[in-house]
């Protein structure tokens, strides 16, 4: 089985974000970058599926600047076999990114193409499903459990108030939600091995796209909390404030 995992390099979710001078991008100085956490679920799923099958190949594909090589190495250290970097500064238009990735994946004989359900930096939820469409493959998004057997997959999705179970023939595209697995940490041996694994870089140029970011703003500062009182005596005052001030009940 041949599996591709698409990976994005994103700012650490705990990083303090500062809007850059242009007002449209983030100031990257001093920010730590990590693999997109949802993509880590996809990486783990790919590695585990190959381990279970006992054969096959796993390939990680990232679109980004040269700095994303480090992110790809992390995936290789986890156990992915080889990496491809599509060199590009990226685009705010997910469709442009999807086209470049689809062009890379097309005709390569992948049985399964995995994404995280979204990237935590732009929250677009777009690229995985668009790639599926471009490759004319079935797509199951936001998957929280996945098994592959006999050329078909079964998946679970957590939907409002329940779980949906689906089945689909391979090849297919799956985007991973949290809960699907616990991504492994790279081992020392994995880090050593990753240095010797192939990492191919290919410059790509994205189209201008139809979407541009006009501005970025930080969320408003949160107001300080208020302690109404202590014990049961404070309950009426709390209920009152929840009604009149917070307006949540």
């Amino acid at each position: 089985m041949k599996i591709a995992v698409c990976l994005k390099r994103v700012p650490d979710t705990t990083a303090k974000i500062v809007v850059g001078g242009d007002g449209k991008s983030i100031d990257e100085s001093g920010v730590k970058f990590v693999p997109n956490p949802y993509d880590e679920y996809a990486l783990e799923a790919a590695i585990a599926l190959k381990e279970k099958a006992g054969a096959g190949e796993t390939v990680v594909v990232a679109l980004g600047t040269d700095a994303a090589q480090e992110t790809i190495r992390t995936a290789l250290a986890m156990g992915i076999d080889r990496g491809v970097l599509l060199q590009s500064p990226g685009s705010a238009d997910g469709f442009e990114v999807a086209k470049a990735i689809a062009a890379e994946l097309k005709g390569q004989g992948y049985d399964l193409i995995l994404f995280g359900k979204m990237a935590v930096d732009d929250y677009n939820h777009q690229v995985g499903v668009m790639v599926a469409e471009l490759l004319e493959l079935p797509c199951v998004s936001a998957v929280s459990a996945l098994t592959v057997e006999g050329g078909a997959l079964t998946a679970e999705r957590e939907i409002e108030g329940g779980v949906e179970q689906l089945a689909c023939q391979l090849p297919a595209v799956v985007t991973a939600d949290k809960g699907i697995n616990t991504p492994r940490l790279p081992s020392l041996k994995g880090i050593m091995a990753a240095k010797k694994k192939p990492l191919e870089t290919k410059p790509v140029s994205l189209g201008a796209g139809s979407i541009t970011v006009t501005s970025l703003a930080l969320p408003p500062e949160r107001q300080a909390g208020k302690i109404v009182g202590e014990g049961p005596d404070a309950v009426p005052a709390l209920v009152q404030l929840l009604r009149t001030e917070a307006k949540v009940i």
Partner: peptide, 9 residues
């Protein structure tokens, strides 16, 4: 969950 054993060097 996520246990990783020690490594010797």
């Amino acid at each position: 969950d996520g246990y990783a054993e020690p490594t010797d060097l």
